[in-house]
């Protein structure tokens, strides 16, 4: 069973609550060394990497921009 600190630290990681706040530094330090939290941390990181791989590639949207502009600039009928 994971120690309570691991549960709180992993939750803070998933919540994106490690950027700031009184406990962020404490949790970041815990996650840095904790062997038990490592698989969870690795899974969330892999999830983010997968999302960027799937949805990250940029497409050329110039044609879409032109169509949007044509619609917006159309004089009211």
């Amino acid at each position: 069973m994971k120690a309570p600190i691991c549960r709180h630290a992993c939750r803070a990681l998933a919540e994106g609550a490690l950027e700031s706040g009184p406990q962020a530094l404490f949790f970041r330090f815990h996650l840095w060394y904790c062997w038990y939290c490592w698989p969870y941390k690795r899974q969330l990181r892999a999830l983010g990497d997968a999302a960027r791989e799937v949805w990250g590639p940029r497409r050329d949207t110039r044609a879409v921009e032109d169509r949007v502009l044509a619609q917006l600039m159309r004089p009211p009928s």
């Binding site: 949805w55 940029r58 497409r59 949207t61 879409v64 921009e65 949007v68 502009l69 917006l72 600039m73």
Partner: peptide, 18 residues
């Protein structure tokens, strides 16, 4: 309007795909 569309179409379009 053109500046708004040129700067924001790509992120909006990709977000919609996402």
């Amino acid at each position: 309007i053109e500046r708004l569309v040129r700067e924001n179409t790509a992120p909006l379009f990709h977000a919609a795909l996402g």
